[in-house]
Simulated assay, not measured.
Amino acid sequence: MSHDRSSTSADDLSVVHRPGARTASSQAGPGPVASSTPHEESVGQLLSDLTQQMSRLVRDEVQLAKIDLTEKGKKAGLGLGAFSIAGLLAFFALGALVTTAIAALSQAVDVWLAALIVAVVLLVLAAVAALVGKKEVQQATPPVPQAAVDGVKKDVEAVKEGFTR
């Protein structure tokens, strides 16, 4: 990043002042906070600023996580609704196909035997589908607010980088 920076040392701590940055008295929203004067700040003031910034950062990350999960929930709800409609229509179509299979098989054997054969085949297919579904559900990852997780990782890296300066 290329910013115009000037540094002032205060009790072995370096304070970075950026032109155009908000002052400590400005409390609206997240962002960099600089001293209201370009002179040295006390360690107590620096710690107070750090505490306020960390508190605001945590609140902002929690808010981002809420927004992210809400959006994912809405999309999942719409998707599940569409899948429900598709499943209902497929169920009716399957009923028609089962009736067709029984009618066709009844040309070769008695109707009751044709119905029994089709029912056994359907139960085997249901068991296979249940096993595949169970396997897929177990492999599903829990919903994660990815934007908030990425933001926290960047914040941790920024804090680590700040301590190594």
Rank of each mutant, 00 (worst) to 15 (best):
L105K: 05
K154T: 15
I117K: 03
L131D: 00
A108P: 01
F91P: 05
A129Y: 00
L50K: 08
V137N: 02
V121E: 05
D110N: 08
L89W: 12
R56D: 13
P38G: 08
M54E: 07
L113F: 02
L78C: 08
E41S: 09
G133L: 07
K153R: 12
A104H: 01
S106D: 02
I117F: 05
F163L: 12
L105R: 06
V121Y: 03
I117W: 01
S25P: 06
I117A: 10
V149T: 03
A86D: 04
A90Q: 09
L89M: 14
K72T: 14
G29W: 03
A140D: 04
A108K: 12
Q138L: 14
A93H: 09
K135H: 09
L64M: 07
A86V: 08
T141V: 04
A96T: 11
A119M: 12
A158K: 05
K75V: 15
A147P: 04
K74S: 14
V156G: 02
E136C: 09
L123K: 02
K72W: 12
S35P: 13
R56Q: 13
Q63C: 02
T37L: 13
S35A: 10
E41P: 09
V137M: 06
V109F: 00
V137T: 13
D110W: 04
T100P: 00
L89T: 12
L64S: 02
A21E: 11
V132S: 01
V111Q: 06
R59M: 11
A101E: 03
R59S: 12
Q138E: 15
A148K: 05
P38L: 06
A148P: 04
L69Y: 03
V120T: 14
Q139N: 13
L57Y: 01
A103F: 01
P142G: 02
H39T: 14
G81T: 13
L123N: 05
G77I: 12
A65S: 10
K75H: 15
A65E: 03
A119S: 09
P38Q: 07
V121D: 05
A114Q: 02
A127S: 05
T51V: 10
P30N: 09
V58L: 10
V109G: 00
V156R: 07
A65V: 05
A140L: 03
V128G: 00
G151H: 13
V120M: 13
R22E: 11
V62D: 03
A86W: 04
A21M: 09
V120C: 10
H39V: 13
A65Q: 05
Q63V: 07
K75F: 14
T37G: 15
G44V: 15
Q139Y: 09
K154N: 15
E161L: 09
A86L: 08
V124K: 00
G95I: 08
D150K: 06
Q63I: 10
V156C: 04
M54Q: 09
A114G: 02
A158F: 09
Q53G: 10
V43E: 12
I85L: 12
L113A: 01
A82C: 00
T37D: 15
H39L: 13
T37I: 14
L123G: 09
S36V: 14
D68M: 08
A34C: 15
A28N: 01
D49C: 10
A148S: 06
G151I: 12
S35W: 11
E157V: 12
A114P: 04
G73N: 03
S35M: 08
V111N: 05
L78N: 11
S35K: 06
A90H: 10
E136K: 11
G81H: 10
A129W: 00
F92N: 09
K75S: 15
